[in-house]
Design a protein around this nucleic acid. Structure first.
Lengths: 138, 138
DNA sequence: CTTGACTCCGTACTTAAGTACGGCATTAAC
DNA sequence: GTTAATGCCGTACTTAAGTACGGAGTCAAG
């Protein structure tokens, strides 16, 4: 089914992951993506796991993680340094739960907004901003 | 209770919102924050609603919204252009729900990671990356 | 009435995350 | 077997989001 996702050139990888070729090279420099060997000749080949990884990076980014944070997330899954990883993961998990709470509040606020918007004419006091009031940190 | 949050100078506002003074001025230039009048003399004064607004911007940012997107969110709540606003809000809501789904997957993955991490010794095949596989867009 | 902290404003610098460019090598297609 | 498309690599440019800086004005305290 995804046999065509093996043995990709860098251009094909970029296309498959929906990013620019230069972005791939940039991620390699940053250590977010391994630089594979050049099996035949002098051209690197990539596989489905690379596509997955690039997509992961982009998704995490859209959720407000910086590339450095994504790199930390990726380090968690290599299985080594188990205890460090657990602590890291716990901290990330706390972050993620705060984000979830914030997002849920925004979701509610937007849903209410949509609900009321054309129902109530005139003054629509919407709870969007209030949604993020109860924020502990800065 | 928040009487001390009225009549703030820009410095006090920045401190109250946990950002740099320059950030306040930057947000004003961007139209994310109103530039109030100078009631006495030539110094502007700010109130609690400004603190709230700056905090909102920072929170939304941590969730992956750009300042331009935050500006759009803020425009939604002024009550004018009701039908445009509703469509906008619906689109934002769809975005937010995708983000929520992604974040929940990351949450699950991190929780599993923490769970297993010190339980299973050695090979920890963690589902972090897989969490964001099923992403429709790019 | 001066001094130190702060404001105002414009301009310039910085960092993160790409994106583009130019020159050379290689390889697939005709 | 030439040539157009890619790949490789290094360096330079761009955009978003601040951050810093410098000079002039202002205000409250001593």
């Amino acid at each position: 089914m995804q046999k065509e996702l093996e043995n990709l050139t860098i251009g094909a990888l970029a296309r498959a992951a929906g990013v620019n070729v230069e972005t791939i090279r940039f991620y390699q420099r940053k250590g977010l993506l391994p630089e594979p060997d050049k099996p035949y000749g002098s051209i690197r080949r990539y596989g489905a796991s690379d596509v997955t990884r690039v997509r992961f990076v982009k998704s995490a980014q859209r959720l407000g993680f910086s590339l450095d944070e994504v790199a930390e997330l990726l380090k968690l899954e290599d299985g080594t340094h188990c205890d460090e990883a657990r602590e890291q993961a716990e901290r990330k998990l706390a972050d993620v739960r705060i984000k979830l709470a914030d997002l849920r509040r925004i979701e509610r606020a937007l849903a209410e907004l949509v609900e009321r918007c054309c129902a109530a004419t005139g003054q629509v006091r919407c709870p969007l901003i209030e949604a993020l009031q109860q924020n502990p940190v800065g």
